[in-house]
Design a protein around this nucleic acid. Structure first.
Lengths: 338, 338
DNA sequence: TTGTAAGCGTTATCAA
DNA sequence: TTGATAACGCTTACAA
């Protein structure tokens, strides 16, 4: 840890600038000199300091990824996509978990700024609008992922949540369901709101009255789905189908149904959102709306890079992925009551 | 991004050293002066540079976490544990995915060293012994997690894989199974080897001959489990139970069994390893060996911190967690053939 | 082609 | 209590 560019220069019998040049491939260097430098560096086990480098370059080649919880199966996919694109471009990523806590979000972002990340990919709560605005105002490149933040003028990559929910509920309606409940996600996230919106829209276009009592909010976890499922299934008349805010919730709902002695899909149809691995593994397979999470992560990082390098500037761009309805085994035709 | 400690000093009408003192809480500063500095910093929106700070302190307050794949449900838990402990201590973590590729492992570690992380938590392949040795020799604090690396003299936190496998197989044996196959993990990981060892040991102590044909290696994925399951179930005589290298593999095996028209646990008992969330969600619930992944992550970070701060020095320590057999629905008594 | 030296933004030493 | 000032390790004009 003690060997610096100076040591390398000395050992190679050249100036530090020359060492810098060969190591960075900038400027002309005689082949023979280059050899000597490389040899010296190798012999000394020289590890250049990106700290020092970053200080002068005003670039750290690092980015920050701020997500709610890596433990929620949806985020590892996004994270992997981001990481893949980042490391291909020579960047390293800082990971921060916020649990959707606005205070933690602010804290993490602050830390990242102190670390002088070149950009931030942010999956945050709706409340964080000012946070993002400030970042933007301060010229920190960033892209907001998965959730839309107000009308902030930022690069955003997400899926059409409203449309996805709409497709999911239409599917249910086509199957003959009328009493469709919604086990909703986190109410303070735009994602949760948009999916709820799609649900509502589907009912409307089918001429089904929207019943506020048929939607129960929670958060995006399995446990929440279980609790909300219990509530919903205790209602009378009982819903014949439930559209869940995401797959974890859907799985929790199914668990609650089972415990209530209900069979899915015979007594209850369930649709999720995301298409995490678990959804394809459980039996029956979960009907859901697929989100290309990994590609979304890649794209977000690619867009961030364009901002960092200045290849792109100007108003925020939006890339909206079209989700895809994946019909598996948890949905089934509702036989008309005799 | 342009405001520096100098600007703050000027605005507060003090020297930079004073600003540094109040911001870091080091040394004496008159209350009134402190106020002025704080005000100036706030007014200017000053964000101290950890790059510059790290350069002089020779500490970056960052750590690197190197894992195979965040997409494998076991690692988010570990990652979260590490992150929790890290952020509590004021550290930020760099995340690297290696896909168990030795070349990538080396590359990522190099990157982390350049970034001057204060320490590294490493989940790598057995082959990387030299890599770890070099790190140690260079005085980079580190702890190896989940997998044991040779007899390298490093802090290590893992679970007793041999014992866990032993417990799993004993369970199967107690249930009356004799033809027990092993859908093994990645052969080049110590983890995979140890679990295989426990499997073998259980058979031996029960007086069951170890049959090399009954163990098939793959990697720690669902797909691998599916493929290996097909192979194993095609054997004659067919095994009545399969011990899988981890939960994902177990789930893949179960899928293969289903497709072969076999019922789990009636025709085949299956036990996994890890106890990821999915294992509790699927029906029937997967019998498995629980690993306290999140706590392991926390502990690893805590141990790393002790090295970084110099609170602990000397030979590598090992913390071996005792795994716990969780019996759920995929294992069942083997009725003696009539 | 290559070397010298001036920063980059902080901390820490030494006086005052 | 506080202020200069010398590092920290590297990049980049500017000269040579």
């Amino acid at each position: 840890m003690a060997v610096t560019i100076r040591d390398v220069a000395q050992r190679a019998g050249v100036g530090v600038a020359t060492v810098s040049r060969v190591l960075n491939g900038t400027g002309y260097v005689k082949a023979e000199t280059r050899e000597r430098v490389l040899e010296a560096a190798a012999a000394l086990g020289y590890v250049p300091s990106q700290l020092a480098r970053g200080l002068v370059r005003h670039l750290s080649d690092t980015v920050g990824l701020v997500i709610p919880d890596i433990t929620n199966p949806f985020f590892p996919l996004i994270t992997r996509g981001v990481e893949d694109a980042a490391s291909e471009a020579g960047y390293t990523v800082f990971l921060c978990n916020t649990d959707n806590d606005p205070a933690l979000e602010a804290h993490d972002v602050q830390k990242l700024r102190e670390r002088r990340v070149d950009g931030i990919i942010f999956v945050g709560t709706t409340e964080r609008r000012e946070l993002v605005d400030r970042l933007l105002a301060d010229g920190v490149p960033m892209v907001v992922m998965d959730r839309q933040l107000g009308h902030a003028d930022v690069d955003t990559v997400l899926v059409d949540n409203r449309w996805g929910a709409l497709a999911a509920c239409r599917h249910l309606i086509e199957l003959g369901h009328r009493r469709i409940a919604h086990a909703a996600g986190h109410q303070s996230t735009r994602t949760g709101q948009d999916r709820h919106e799609g649900y509502r829209e589907a009912l409307e276009e089918a001429g089904i009255a929207y019943d506020p009592a048929a939607v129960v909010w929670g958060d995006f976890t399995y446990e929440s789905g279980y609790r909300v499922g219990q509530v919903l299934l205790g209602r009378y008349p009982r819903p014949t189908a439930i559209f869940a805010g995401n797959d974890l919730i859907a799985l929790g709902v199914i668990r609650a149904a089972e415990e209530a002695g209900l069979s899915v899909p015979d007594d209850l149809s369930v649709v999720g959102f995301d298409d995490i691995q678990m959804s394809a593994v459980v039996r029956p397979g979960l009907t859901t709306v697929r989100q290309p999470a990994r590609e979304m992560g890649r794209l977000a990082m690619a867009m961030l890079l364009e901002r960092i390098t200045g290849k792109v500037s100007g108003p925020g761009r939006r890339h909206v992925f079209q989700p895809e309805l994946i019909v598996r085994g948890t949905t089934r035709r509702r036989e008309p009551l005799a």
